[in-house]
Simulated scan of single mutants.
Amino acid sequence: MADSQMEDDPAFETPAPVVFIAPSINQEHLFSGASYTHYSAVPPALLPTPSLTSPDSLEPGPACALGVDEAGRGPVLGPMVYGLFYLPIPFSDPLLRKTHHFDDSKVLTPTVRSNLMEKLCTSETDLYTQCGWAVDVMSARDIGANMMKPAGTYNLNAQAMDATIALIHGVYKMGVNVKEIYIDTIGNPATYQKKLERIFPTANVTVAKKADSLYPCVSAASVCAKVTRDAALEVLYESYVQKPEEDEDTSKTKVVQEESWGSGYPSDARCTSWLKRNMDPVFGWGSECRFSWGTAKDMLDLKGVAAKVDWPIEDDDETTRLTDFFNGEKEKQSDDLGSWFGHRPGTEVF
């Protein structure tokens, strides 16, 4: 199955029935519509160590491979998440591919993805002690606001590239000895690779299409990104589920369940149905919705559904100049300027 088909297939994109809530889930930021980043602690085995020959200096940790991939580029609901994963170069294939069977998150079932992420976050496992990861959670509100700026549009590719670069810089600052960088491409691979090579000159950079299937560290990054997005969707959805209410007569609880919004992709009928049922005529939806997406725009523009608001525009006389306020002829016609300071009293005052 082609990647484009997988990305639109609700079966691949819908979260697991019970999704692992990773430490990368910040409920406060999610509900407020704010973007944020999360870095796991660097395993001690990957940190610099004191030099045996020079006590005042540090020896770099083991050379690491680092991969970056995203999840949630196309949905109308929920964040886009960039995931990053790193580990010692010799461990990349045997640990990730052969032992734990990491692969592109789109070909793993939601339950398998969730279980892999849980292992990564469980202390004393080989993944926890040998690997590190990070995510940049780009909120739907911020994505939409950036894409709808009246001037200097900040498109999705530019936002994604900045998120990738910032994540990698963060790992370097934590002391990880990154020597190989693998990234699933945004646009033209050669152009993107040259830019990253200039920014990270000490690492061997590889940018390729389908990198999440070719390089184990990118596969692991895709899992981190996808499970974080899955969990974020679950947390955001909870705000639309009514909490149990006490029934005064029977002392029983009753719960009103809102039908799921599914994967959040426009191709998912559950998503579009949810959007139609839950659209406020004035505000549309909450910060979980990307208002810059055609799906949201079309629903808001549908005649007779959303409230129409006309924003008045004040007339602006483009010929007005500052010196016009000090023109003698205009002063004769209007004494507004003089009235700012009062009038000279005449005899009629007395």
Rank of each mutant, 00 (worst) to 15 (best):
D9P: 06
P10Q: 11
F31D: 10
Y36M: 03
Y39T: 01
P43F: 13
L52C: 08
D56F: 09
L58E: 07
E59S: 10
A65H: 06
G67K: 06
D69S: 12
A71G: 05
G72I: 00
R73M: 07
M80S: 05
V81L: 06
V81A: 01
G83L: 01
G83Y: 02
L84S: 00
F91I: 00
D93S: 07
R97Y: 07
H101G: 08
H101I: 03
F102T: 05
D103A: 13
D103F: 01
S105G: 04
K106M: 04
T109M: 10
T111L: 13
S114H: 09
L127T: 03
G132H: 05
W133E: 02
D136K: 14
G144F: 04
A145K: 14
M147T: 13
M148Q: 13
G152Y: 08
T153W: 06
L156E: 08
L156S: 08
A158F: 06
Q159V: 11
M161T: 14
I165D: 02
A166T: 15
G175M: 00
V176M: 00
K179F: 09
K179L: 03
I181V: 13
I181C: 03
G187H: 12
G187I: 10
Q193H: 07
K195H: 11
E197I: 07
E197V: 09
T206H: 11
V207R: 09
D212Y: 04
S213P: 09
S222F: 01
V223E: 01
V227I: 08
T228S: 08
A232N: 00
L236N: 12
Y237C: 04
S239I: 08
K243P: 06
P244T: 02
T253V: 07
K254P: 00
K254C: 03
Q257I: 15
W261Q: 02
G262N: 07
S263D: 00
G264M: 01
S267M: 08
D268N: 14
D268E: 05
A269E: 11
A269L: 09
A269W: 08
C271A: 11
K276F: 04
R277P: 00
D280F: 05
V282H: 06
C289P: 00
F291C: 04
W293F: 14
D298H: 10
D298S: 09
L302E: 15
G304D: 11
V309S: 02
E314I: 13
D315N: 06
D317N: 15
T319L: 10
T320F: 15
T320K: 15
R321H: 14
T323E: 15
N327V: 14
N327K: 12
K332H: 13
K332V: 14
Q333F: 05
S334R: 14
S334F: 07
S339H: 03
S339D: 13
W340D: 07
F341D: 06
H343L: 13
T347C: 05
E348N: 11
